[in-house]
Design a protein around this nucleic acid. Structure first.
Length: 301
DNA sequence: ATCCAGGAACTGT
DNA sequence: ACAGTTCATGGA
């Protein structure tokens, strides 16, 4: 089963892939023979897919293949899978509109040159996204990535296809069943261990319905998630950006964003949240992408 | 050693 | 409401 997706340019798959590797978030991806593989959960079912980036006469394209062995996906499942992959790779994001919006900013414009075509590569699963985000709270990124890897290695599943093994992030049910001590052994703090396990339990018993979040406004998503212990504003903002692909989120208190603003706008001290929020008014409705590019500007220092 | 990380909860006023 | 403290660990 093969489908070709055509994002409206600019779309730079290689930049997206390089960022995945640089930030050490490629835990669940495997590259074989120029194709990028990964397993997604579709209605509790594990489905392996792969993509290959191609330049065609019609512009940039992403060839998608589902590897389901002898079984076939129903038309409905196929449609759901395609929808998920489109969202993952930010296929339908009119990125040029963001660039037009930044035209007038002498500070932001150079970022567009540097990162031209870079889009969010989203997490296909909100549970997984939330757990990874909780793990990375207040930690340097390499260490956060190491913790995530340990969770996958210890509690994750695998799917085998044509002799290759593909890792799968643990399900909410699995994570709900583990004890805080098991995470402590992996160098989680006691609190963080509780946050992650409690969240998994909330999802398992249906206290939070992650699928329904897609249909809610930003404010409604906040009011659903903020009551949960260990989930603050920043964590929800990350979920909305890296999980849900919302393009106008501004994590104004984020330390990385404030450092990015300091660097790009040539400030002599780290701006506060209010300053960033004020600045961000000009970026709407593209504040997620402005944030994203400002984060990236810190990487190539 | 000391300070800070792409925070959040807790405590005291 | 608000500010200061604690949580845990790695990296600079």
């Amino acid at each position: 089963m093969k489908t070709i997706l055509y994002p409206t340019p600019p779309f730079d798959f290689n930049k997206m892939k390089k960022r995945l590797l640089r930030t050490k978030q490629a835990h669940l991806y495997r590259e074989l023979d120029h194709r990028l593989y990964r397993v997604i959960r579709l209605n509790q079912q594990l489905i392996l897919f792969s993509v290959q980036y191609l330049e065609t006469e019609l512009g940039p394209s992403l060839e998608v293949q589902f590897h389901t062995g002898h079984e076939f996906l129903s038309p409905k499942e196929l449609e759901k899978g395609i929808t998920m992959i489109k969202r993952m790779f930010s296929i339908d994001i009119p990125l040029h509109q963001f660039y037009e919006k930044m035209e007038g900013s002498p500070q932001m414009k150079p970022l567009i040159q540097s990162f031209y075509g870079l889009r969010f590569l989203l997490e296909p699963d909100l549970f997984e996204c939330m757990v990874k985000t909780i793990i990375s709270q207040q930690l340097n990124l390499p260490f956060a990535a190491a913790l995530t890897q340990r969770v996958i290695d210890t509690f994750g599943e695998t799917l085998e296809w044509e002799g290759e093994i593909f890792p799968v992030f643990p399900s909410p049910e699995r994570m709900a069943s583990i004890a805080p001590d098991q995470l402590r052994q992996m160098q989680f703090s006691q609190r963080k261990a509780e946050y992650v396990i409690d969240f998994a339990k909330s999802v398992e018993r249906g206290a939070v319905n992650l699928d329904r979040l897609y249909h809610l406004s930003d404010q409604e998503v906040f009011s659903q998630l903020l009551p949960l212990r260990g989930i603050g504003r920043w964590t929800v903002e990350c979920l909305m950006m890296f999980g849900m692909g919302r393009t106008d989120v501004l994590p104004a208190a984020d330390i990385g964003l404030r450092n990015g603003v300091k660097k790009v706008f040539g400030l002599d001290s780290q701006p506060d949240e209010e300053y960033v929020r004020k600045l961000g008014e000009d970026w709407s409705p593209w504040r997620s992408y402005a944030t994203f590019y400002l984060w990236e500007s810190l990487a190539d220092s």
